[in-house]
Amino acid sequence: MKKERLISSYDEVNDTFVGKIDGKNGYVVDYGITDGIFLGLNNSNLPTSVFISNASEVLDISKTDLESADVKIGIKCDDANLTFRMCIEDLLVFSTRCKNSFGIPNLNFLIDCNI
């Protein structure tokens, strides 16, 4: 499993969560992997950022909990599927699986604020 440091922020007024991999700037393409969750990829089709609009509603979690600094995001892909999991303070708050129609290579990625 590849591990990277996550830098995350939550804007309570606009209810948006943004997470990016430390040291990675920008993205080439942005895919909506499920309602409200967007995954930014670099030119090698590797994840660089996550954007969640209406985050408290999409994740079904309080705005107070979204302000936590202890966030982990797991992204696992194979030729057929992409699995996205998000934990806050070691509690699974969201998980989804969708078809990998994005060209993301096989990977097992953990983006963690505590690395």
Rank of each mutant, 00 (worst) to 15 (best):
M1N: 15
K2C: 12
K2I: 15
K3R: 15
K3Q: 11
R5W: 07
R5V: 04
S8N: 08
Y10D: 10
F17P: 02
F17S: 00
V18W: 11
I21W: 05
D22C: 03
G23T: 09
K24C: 03
K24T: 13
N25C: 09
Y27G: 04
V28H: 08
I33P: 12
I33A: 09
I33Y: 11
D35G: 12
L39C: 08
L41C: 03
N42F: 05
N45W: 09
S49V: 08
F51C: 06
S56D: 07
V58F: 05
L59M: 01
D60I: 02
D60Y: 02
S62H: 03
K63D: 12
L66I: 02
S68N: 06
A69P: 04
D70V: 01
K72Q: 14
I73F: 00
G74D: 14
C77P: 10
D79P: 00
N81F: 14
T83F: 13
F84S: 06
F84C: 06
F84R: 05
R85S: 15
C87R: 13
C87T: 07
L91R: 14
L92K: 02
L92T: 07
S95W: 10
R97I: 13
R97S: 12
K99R: 12
S101Y: 09
P105Q: 09
P105Y: 02
L107Y: 09
N108K: 12
N108S: 09
F109E: 06
L110T: 14
L110N: 14
D112S: 12
C113F: 05
N114L: 08
I115G: 06
